[in-house]
Amino acid sequence: MNRTRHPRRWLIILPPLLFLLIFFLVPFFYTLKISFAESVIRIPPFTDIFTRTADHRLHLTLDLNNFRRLFTEELYGLAYLFSLRTAFFSTLICLLLGYPIAYAMSRAPRATQKVLLLAIILPFWTSFLLRVYALEAVIQNDGILNMLLLRLGLISHPLVIMHTNLAIYIGIIYSYLPYMVLPLFATLQKLDPALLEAASDLGSPPWRAFLDVTLPLSLPGIIAGSMLVFIPAVGEFVIPSLLGGPGNLMIGRVLWDEFFTNHDWPVASAVAIAFVVLLVGPIAIYQYFSARHLES
């Protein structure tokens, strides 16, 4: 169409492009720059990697020590591994719990589905921080969960959940379960019941039909849901900091501490850059290609 070539289209394109360049992309290059700087005690607390020598030549000093520390100091490696492991298993458990819920939702009558959908979406809108806080009252030593289990005689001593890794798992699963259920429900709902009918006509028992028809067809929902849970879980800060123990090693917390407690900004920048390169980069590339695959 002719008008898409119109120069006035830049009035539409430029504002968001410039805003995101300034507040999203430039900061990253800046972080990259600082990750090569040295930590010093002044304001701002790092050296400039560009210095002018006496004969007015620009001199570039790249200090690789911050990145070397990521490999030599155990803390960072452990933190990456711990975050990955926690996010992976939380995602898996979310999938195992979310699939039956989404499946049952897809079987409900239309009118009920709308109510159920609202019930799943509503927690999205209520404060994340407050939901994590609300969980604390349930899993505390003298919380509802322990009270219930003690009453039922299932345990004789209250379970210590708060400030353990288990609390982090519970927190992530509780907070992100809706993110898993929604895309699963969306794919399961679109599933043509005639396919299952055909499978059963051809002699498949229901479990077989589920494995051969429903499960493969819901794969896009499984992938989308897993991404939606895994990605924020890896970098999670609020849950490990409120529910987890004092020494837990979620990378989001390590970064926060490096920044606010240790004031070592160059190392925090290096941790952030490594995180982006190792985790966010591959995910972004995967999403880009899967989106292109869908388009074609």
């Binding site: 972080t31 952030a272 982006v276």
Partner: peptide, 9 residues
């Protein structure tokens, strides 16, 4: 897809 801690820093 970016953790907020990182965009914040």
């Amino acid at each position: 897809v970016m953790p907020e801690v990182i965009t914040g820093i």
